[in-house]
């Protein structure tokens, strides 16, 4: 219980810091006044611009944490991550197509749909390659993920070069690919919250299965699980979760790797705990990273993906250097 209160406290702290931070630093008292219904210009700006942005960042972080927990659970591998296993790259390719290729469908629909199709297809491809090699071990998965990601990134770059012109700004795609939040409307935040809640419930439903799978495929199978079907469903849910986060926040690496790790380290490996904890940790991380992205070099914004990569890269190396499994 104490762990959960601590986690909740961290998220609250991160949200507060996130709202305070920006081009100008606002004190917590100003934030409190704005939330309490103050009508000054300053408060209106906070409510219209900063609060929704911070909430969206937190939700994207939660989705990344969820996606990471699902992928690590499915692959039973502490190094599995949407970014490394091609899902994020697939989503990025799908989104690039949606942003650059003139389609009859409006971008509101084509962006999430193509991002999801890309994420799902890439993940299935990585699993397929690993299965064909007859093994799902770390090296095979990572190598096949790296190869698939490289091919997808090449396609994405080609599309960006070939299709961008005066009417479609490369800047839009680039800032999105590097990971960056746009400030959403309150309705947008509401919609994202609803979808995130659905993702959380979907992921939690997978928890007992992921626990069985953690005992190995043979044991899971004798415990009454249809392993292949479960992996198929779980990858679908994980890819959908990643696709939502990529649609909103672009490519933000390493959060999906770090959050489940910290969750397992504090709470043990049972997924009924790891999944929600990972969502909270992801929310806190991305909220803080977004705060840094907005306030480090005013008036410019650093792409969010760069902030998480700068912090997450060393974390990943740290994981590789130690062998303890969480």
């Amino acid at each position: 219980m104490r762990v959960w209160i601590t986690l909740g406290g961290f998220v609250f702290l991160a949200l507060t810091v996130g709202i305070c931070a920006g081009h100008t630093w606002e004190g917590p008292d100003a934030v409190f006044r704005a939330l309490a219904g103050d009508t000054s210009m300053e408060s209106a700006l906070l409510l219209e611009w900063r609060v929704p942005r911070v909430l969206a960042a937190a939700l994207v972080g939660a989705l990344l944490g969820l996606g990471g927990a699902i992928f690590q659970g499915v692959f039973r591998n502490p190094l599995a991550e949407p970014y490394l296993l091609g899902s994020a790259g697939g989503a990025a390719l799908g989104a690039t197509v949606a942003l650059l290729v003139p389609l009859s469908l409006s971008q509101t629909f084509s962006l999430p749909i193509l991002a999801f199709a890309g994420a799902w297809g890439a993940t299935l491809l990585v699993i397929g390659v690993a299965r064909a090699a007859g093994t799902m071990d770390v090296s095979t998965l990572l190598l096949s993920g790296v190869a698939v990601s490289a091919v997808l990134a090449a396609f994405k770059s080609f599309l960006m070069l070939a299709l961008s012109d005066e009417t479609v700004s490369l800047q839009v795609v680039l800032s999105w690919v590097l990971g960056g939040m746009q400030t959403p409307t309150w309705a947008g935040v509401g919609g994202l919250a609803a979808v995130s809640l659905a993702a959380l419930l979907g992921c939690l439903a997978l928890a007992p299965g992921l626990d069985k799978l953690g005992l190995g495929e043979a044991m899971a199978s004798t415990f009454g699980m249809n392993v292949d079907r479960f992996i198929g469903v779980a990858v679908l849910v994980g890819a959908a979760t990643v696709a939502i986060s990529v649609t909103v926040g672009g490519l933000i690496g390493f959060v999906g790797l770090a959050a489940p790790h910290i969750a397992r380290w504090r709470l043990g490996p049972l997924h009924r705990s790891v999944i929600p904890a990972s969502a909270l940790i992801g929310a806190a991380i991305v909220t803080l990273a977004d705060a840094i992205a907005r306030s480090a070099l005013p008036p410019a914004e650093i792409p969010l993906g760069l902030v998480t990569a700068v912090a997450g890269g060393p974390f990943f190396l740290f994981l590789l250097a130690r062998s303890r499994q969480w």
Binding site: K212, G214, L215, G216, A218, G224, P269, L270
Partner: peptide, 26 residues
């Protein structure tokens, strides 16, 4: 099948380190 047949494999190693109580719970 899971209720009727218990299978004890030759090699068993959980992918995540886990407490005995949680193992029994699963």
């Amino acid at each position: 099948r899971a209720r009727t047949i218990g299978y004890m494999p030759q090699h068993f190693a959980p992918h995540w380190d886990i407490r005995v109580r949680d193992l029994l719970r699963i």
